[in-house]
Design a protein around this nucleic acid. Structure first.
Lengths: 224, 224
DNA sequence: CAACGATGTAAAAGTTTTGTAAAAGCTCAG
DNA sequence: CTGAGCTTTTACAAAACTTTTACATCGTTG
């Protein structure tokens, strides 16, 4: 779930962008001014912040500086009005990752968002967690209650696929296609066998799974 | 069943487009002006809206804004006359997904429709609701008063079939053919057994059903 | 209003799917 | 070539689901 913070005093713009983001399966979070934007950024830890340069109270520039001062690495896209003298060097200095001039097309904004998220790698791609389990993606290690758990390649891939598709019901075929690849067709029971392994390693009581749920007649569903 | 709303004051154009859509297995719904367009969009929840920019009363732009203000994410294709100064940025800003200049070829319109539907993933096919019950099709989950309800495959399929054929009187044979398939013939009482289950799970008082009605001597009828 | 077919419904019977351990098959370093 | 460590398949028990059954009720009709 990628949360995106929008800091702008223009309610209509916030709403437009929110709807756009929702449609693209992001979770929009709105803030009216710099102060509340900063607070929300610190508490909610969004994957990305979209910040208007002109804000009542704390300016966008000030907000960026504050974020960086608080060691928040959330990537930032700055919005600026047409007339504004945008000093690119300044923007990059304060830690903005990109900027978009208003009025902008939704496609353009989306493209920038995607580009920035991809570049920054997003915390998601560095580590993920659910319950007592933490997956360090860079180091390719999994820990449970701070103790490292050995996972085989197949288990690791399947686990990551579940994480990336949390909440959704996944059929065995979909899982096989996505995790094992399109050409290779093991028996669908292979998936079951690996789910059993994941449960044994990551469920408190593997007999009563809380994370790796069976949807009878359909497939599996992962809940964080 | 993909419903497409056409909002235009030109009756001939509405009719032409409707025939085109019907031929392609869409279900066209017509509206003469912005006001009725808005109402129909809100009540019928089409998969796509085709909106003329120039409309008597509420303009197309106003209609789009109203839709977005009502958090309706239905994708919109805007129609504009040749002479119109079309501000692309404005269109995309108000949430239009594409625009077509009149006069247009049917192939072009169809291609745009398909493209937009594909992009948007069709919001309305992602989740459906009736009363306190919400079905999330992507997640294949059913919730009632925000609590998840477990449904078996047969129940889920039957429920979806009822939703897709709301209001209609459905014979047991039709239901069996549609939900169970043409080759397989269980006893028609099977349908009754499953309707009982649906009532138990989704009716306030299963003894006095409000949604899953019996039409004595004929079959069943679902009301949202 | 009696009689008969249609429906509601719980529970039995039957079927399919899943859990799971263990066997069989692979792969690759040594 | 060999064995350790994975992956995949297999087999059977257990769980979940579907269908049928049986009987109580309901609705319709003469």
């Amino acid at each position: 779930m990628q949360k995106i913070l929008i800091v702008d005093d223009d309610a209509e713009l916030r709403e437009t962008v929110s709807i756009l983001l929702e449609r693209e399966r992001f979770v929009p979070i709105q803030a009216v001014d710099g102060q509340s934007g900063l607070e929300k950024a610190l508490s909610i830890k969004p994957s990305l912040a979209i910040v208007d340069l002109r804000l009542p109270g704390m300016s966008g520039i000030e907000l960026c500086k504050q974020l960086r001062a608080n060691r928040v690495a959330t990537p930032i896209i700055v919005l600026s009005a047409v007339g504004d003298e945008v000093d690119k060097v300044l923007l990059l200095e304060i830690g903005a990752d990109d900027y978009v001039v208003k009025p902008f097309g939704t496609r353009e904004l989306l493209a920038r968002i995607r580009a920035v998220l991809r570049r920054s790698g997003d915390e998601w791609t560095r580590s993920v967690r659910f319950g007592e389990v933490e997956i360090d993606i860079e180091r390719r290690t999994v820990t449970r209650e701070s103790k490292e758990v050995k996972v085989t390649p197949a288990e690791y891939n399947l686990l990551l696929f579940f994480l990336q598709n949390a909440e959704r019901v996944l059929t065995r075929d979909l899982i096989l296609n996505s995790v094992w690849g399109y050409e290779y067709y093991p028996n669908t029971r292979t998936v079951d066998a690996h789910v059993v392994k994941l449960r044994q390693k990551f469920e408190k009581d593997p007999a009563i799974p809380k994370h790796f749920l069976t949807i009878h007649g359909v497939g599996y569903r992962f809940l964080p």
